[in-house]
Design a binder for these strands. Structure first.
Length: 262
DNA sequence: ATGCCGGGTGGAACCCGA
């Protein structure tokens, strides 16, 4: 079972790259973020042609999450509990229950709010959103399922997850309030798939388009796959597919992939 | 360097991202 997360920064702009990547890697499940499309305009057909079931929670212009799955999707939940369930709710959380031969696996595609600038209501929105994610993640653990919370968390967990700490001292992604909330998820029992498999530096998932960040490797690790203990017991490997950042018309994020022996 | 790039909307210029 190969499961991936990728902030693709626009499904329309990234369709060729995404299809190429799917053909090369053939993941079983993919969590997508920032599709920037409403459901009605999502290009379902090319994914279905590759054998994927597709669930989308979209929004015009911004945000938007989706889940691709080779196996049947039995259940879909849009949004976190506690969200204002109205038409203004930002499309940032999509959860699916997927059938496998070993039983059900629950997967969430998460596009956590950026939160900049920190002296604005955007930062309090981020922290409130993280509090609601924590409460939901805590509840989900009680199911004792194979569970993967994948997505763009917009949190740099540790100093060695950024090329230069000085560059993000005022950034919402590195504030102690953001990092503490991220670490509280780990304290619940979730494991960061990448850190479960790799130590050290230079493990980045995002490089800004501007200022030659990719060429200078000015990156940060903000896209994560968090595994429940049941899923973590089956973790075989985890990797960042950084080479996609060097492709033509790249997303500014690279995919993260975990392999589970399920 | 909090916008130098890039996507989206809409059809120019502006919002948004990390």
């Amino acid at each position: 079972m190969k499961i991936a997360t990728w902030n693709i920064n626009g499904i329309k702009a990234r369709l060729p790259n995404l299809l190429l990547w799917l053909k090369e890697n053939m993941p079983d499940i993919v969590c997508l973020q920032e599709i920037k499309s409403v459901e009605e305009k999502f290009p379902y057909e090319p994914f279905e042609d590759l054998g994927y079931n597709v669930s989308v929670w979209g929004q015009k212009s911004f945000n938007g999450v989706a889940i691709l799955s080779k196996k049947r999707i039995d259940e879909i939940i849009c949004g976190l509990p506690g969200s204002a369930q109205n038409e203004n709710e930002q499309a940032r959380y999509l959860e699916a229950v997927i059938s496998t031969d070993q039983g059900a696996i629950r997967v969430a595609s998460i596009y956590l709010p950026n939160g900049n600038p920190v002296d604005s209501e955007k930062f309090t929105y981020k922290l409130d959103w993280m509090d609601r994610l924590y409460a939901h993640a805590q509840k989900l653990l009680k199911y004792e399922e194979f569970l993967v919370l994948g997505g763009d968390y917009n949190v740099i967990p540790e100093p060695h997850d950024i090329y230069n700490v000085e560059a993000v001292l005022d950034n919402a992604l590195f504030q102690i309030e953001s990092r503490t909330r991220y670490h509280s998820l780990l304290a619940l029992g979730y494991s960061d798939a990448m850190r479960a498999c790799h130590d050290g530096t230079d493990l980045y998932t995002f490089w800004d388009y501007k200022d030659g960040a990719w060429k200078k490797n000015n990156g940060m690790r903000i896209d994560h796959l968090l595994l429940s203990p049941q899923a973590s017991d089956h973790l075989v490997s985890a990797e960042i597919d950084a080479k996609t950042r060097s492709w033509e018309k790249p997303s500014d994020h690279a995919p993260v992939i975990a392999v589970l022996d399920l």
